[in-house]
Simulated assay, not measured.
Amino acid sequence: MADEVKLDDNQVTATAPAEVAAPKKRGPRAKKVDAATAESSPAPSAGKGRKRKETSAEAKTASQPKRAARKNAARKNDDKRTAAQSQVHDEIADLLQLEKENSRLRRELGDKLRAENAELRKRLGLS
C-alpha cells in the first residue's frame, strides 16, 4: 500500500501510562428513617452526625428572639433611612434658599451696573 508510513524506533517515543490514584471509598450509607419514628425517638447525642431537629414547640420559642432581633434591625434601618431622607430634604431646602438668594443678588447687581453705566454715558456725553 502506498499510504503506509514506516516509522523507525528512533522516531516513536513510548509514553508510560500515568499512575491513576485509586478512588476513595466511602463508608456505609445512613439508614433512612420514617418521619413518624424520627419525631418519637430522639437521635443519639453522642457520636458523629447531624444535630437532631428541634420540635415545633422548641422551634417556636427559639425563633421568637430571632424575629424580635429582625424587627429591631428593621426599625433601626428605617430610622437610618428616615434620618438620611430628612437630611437630604434639609440639604435640598438649603440649596433652594441659596438659589433664591443668588437670583435676588444678581438682580440687585444688574440694577446697580445699569445705573452706573447710565451715569458714565452722561459724563462722556454719549447719550
Rank of each mutant, 00 (worst) to 15 (best):
G110N: 14
S103A: 14
D8W: 01
S127I: 10
P23W: 01
Q85S: 03
A22R: 15
T82I: 10
S103L: 15
R67V: 07
S45C: 12
P42K: 10
K76P: 00
L113I: 15
V5E: 00
Q64R: 08
E99A: 14
E54N: 03
R81A: 08
K60I: 12
D78G: 06
A59N: 10
K60S: 15
D79N: 13
E54K: 11
D8I: 05
A14F: 03
A36E: 12
E116K: 11
L126T: 12
R67K: 07
K31N: 02
S63T: 08
A93W: 09
L109C: 08
T37D: 06
E39G: 15
P28L: 04
V88H: 04
D3Q: 11
A115I: 14
K31Q: 05
A16L: 07
Q85R: 13
R26H: 07
H89F: 09
V88I: 05
T55G: 15
E119C: 05
D34E: 08
A59G: 10
K32I: 13
M1E: 11
R104L: 11
P65E: 01
A43I: 07
Q11I: 12
R104Y: 05
R26L: 13
G110I: 07
S40I: 10
K71N: 10
R107F: 08
K80F: 01
D111I: 15
A115W: 02
P23R: 13
G27H: 05
N117H: 14
L120T: 01
A21M: 02
R123V: 13
S41T: 14
Q11A: 10
S63C: 01
D90Q: 09
A16N: 07
T37P: 00
Q85T: 15
A38D: 05
L105G: 01
E91H: 02
V5A: 07
D90H: 06
R121D: 15
D94L: 14
E54S: 09
K71Y: 00
R29N: 04
S63I: 03
T15I: 11
E119M: 04
D94H: 09
L98C: 03
P65G: 05
K25W: 03
A46H: 12
R104E: 11
K122N: 11
A14K: 06
D3R: 12
R67H: 12
L7I: 12
I92C: 00
A118G: 03
L113F: 08
D8M: 01
K66R: 10
R114V: 12
E99F: 14
P23C: 07
S86G: 00
V88R: 12
T15N: 13
D8S: 14
K76N: 02
K24T: 12
L96Y: 14
L109T: 13
E19W: 01
L113N: 05
V20F: 00
A83P: 01
L124H: 09
G47E: 04
R50T: 09
A73D: 07
P65N: 03
E108S: 05
A46K: 06
S103T: 14
T13Y: 03
A59P: 03
A21C: 02
K112G: 01
L113D: 04
R121V: 02
N77Y: 06
R104S: 08
D78Q: 06
V20Q: 07
A18T: 15
A22W: 00
R104D: 12
N102P: 00
G49Q: 01
A2R: 13
